[in-house]
């Protein structure tokens, strides 16, 4: 059997050190070891985006990142970004527009959308669709998601959007 590897990761602002099986991907580590079940496992081959988390401020596929690769890095999940209030405006827009049904893709959608809002605040509707095209939703038909993001982009900046 492989040896576990020690890694120190700052997850949602809390620094923690764990001995981790190298084969464990980040999404399983967050879910199984830390009980952060908000990010979801769906395809485990990088297509669906349900496992999207933030590593050092940038969105990543949690299933295509080993937990040990996060050693020395900062990881943020939907739970932490909900508590910090960073996602609040987006979450409210998703709620009001019913931009989710089963909710399984939603944490990944929110993290991707938040990256768009930070990086590309002037995005057109077409560009929103393009940016979001790596996150699968099987319920909504996407329009409500695009509408919600567009609403946030078009609303003058308030607290909570950074």
């Amino acid at each position: 059997m492989e040896d576990r590897v020690e890694a120190t990761i700052t997850v949602n602002g809390t620094r923690l050190t764990r001995r981790i099986e190298p084969r464990m991907h980040l999404i399983d580590f967050l879910r199984e070891e830390l009980g952060l079940t908000g990010s979801h496992v769906s395809c485990e081959h990088g297509v669906c985006g349900a496992c999207t988390v933030r590593v050092d401020g940038e969105i990543r596929r949690g299933c295509l990142t080993l937990a040990v690769q996060a050693d020395g890095r900062t990881v943020d999940t939907v739970e932490g970004l909900s508590d910090s209030g960073e996602l609040a405006v987006l979450q409210q827009a998703f709620h009001e527009r019913n931009a989710l049904q089963c909710g399984y893709c939603t944490p990944g959608m929110l993290l991707t959308a938040q990256a768009l809002i930070k990086e590309h605040p002037e995005a057109t509707r077409e560009e929103i669709r393009e940016f979001m095209s790596g996150n699968l939703c099987r319920c909504t038909g996407y329009q409500a998601i695009i509408d919600a993001i567009e609403t946030v982009l078009r609303t003058p900046r308030t607290e909570g959007v950074r």
Binding site: H25, E44, G46, L66, Q69
Partner: peptide, 21 residues
């Protein structure tokens, strides 16, 4: 970056003894 490698490892299409990161 692991974006192809880790997908193939998840599917057990490859089984290396060691990953050199």
């Amino acid at each position: 970056g692991g974006q192809s490698l880790l997908a193939s490892l998840n599917m057990r299409l490859a089984a290396p003894e060691i990953l050199v990161d």
